[in-house]
């Protein structure tokens, strides 16, 4: 599924400093019953965001009107657990285009890159700085510059560079996905398959 191109994103950010946020929290399994990719943002962090009777939980950050923006800043080991791409869809559908963490779980990171959410891995120290800056002033803007591979806290000027492989970077900049690439090498794939034993 095509997604919007990603270039430079400047936005306020939503802080969620918990560690090991797993995909069952990002989107609980009972909301995986759709056969279309629609409306997952409504159930992002469902059980942290709403009470059993669907009233909002006041103390959860997404229900706090002070915080908003297209960047979600999570704690260490963000996205562990299930391979459900629905977790990345929910993040995207809610309106986030970038997740920042000092450490990502593999499959979640991969899924994000495949659907147009940029996972930005920063050092634990820089992650602290971002949280502090947001808690000091919720209007603090963060700039995520994909061409330069940098992330900057606008209020303090603190900056760090981040890694992304050049292939995935090109995809994100252009809004391409892997299927476009693979479709163009079908002949090569078929030759390969013909040489297999099983």
């Amino acid at each position: 599924m095509a997604y919007d191109k990603f270039n430079i994103l400047t936005s306020t950010a939503v802080p969620l400093p918990l560690e090991n946020v797993d995909t069952d929290q990002i989107i609980p399994a009972r909301f995986l019953k759709a056969t279309e990719r629609k409306g997952f943002g409504d159930n992002l962090f469902r059980d942290w965001r709403y009470n059993g009777d669907d009233t909002p939980k006041e103390d959860f950050v997404l229900n706090n009107p002070i915080y908003s923006g297209k960047i979600l800043v999570g704690g260490k080991n963000f996205g562990s657990g299930s391979s459900r791409e629905h977790a990345a869809w929910a993040v995207y559908d809610y309106g986030f285009r970038c997740v920042v963490s000092s450490f990502f779980a593999d499959i979640f990171k991969n899924n994000c890159l495949n659907i147009g959410v940029l996972p930005v891995q920063v050092s634990p120290e820089f992650s602290e700085q971002i949280f502090n800056a947001i808690y000091e002033d919720a209007n603090t803007e963060i700039e995520v510059n994909l061409p330069e591979q940098t992330i900057t806290i606008k209020s303090t000027g603190a900056q760090e560079s981040f890694d992304i492989n050049s292939y995935k970077k090109e995809n994100m900049l252009n809004g391409f996905d892997d299927i476009d690439y693979l479709q163009n090498m079908k002949g090569e794939i078929e030759t390969f398959a013909n040489g297999l034993m099983l």
């Binding site: 990345a88 499959i107 495949n114 659907i115 299927i179």
Partner: peptide
Amino acid sequence: FGIGTSEVEM
């Protein structure tokens, strides 16, 4: 290993 839905499509 486990994959996401975009990869299932691939």
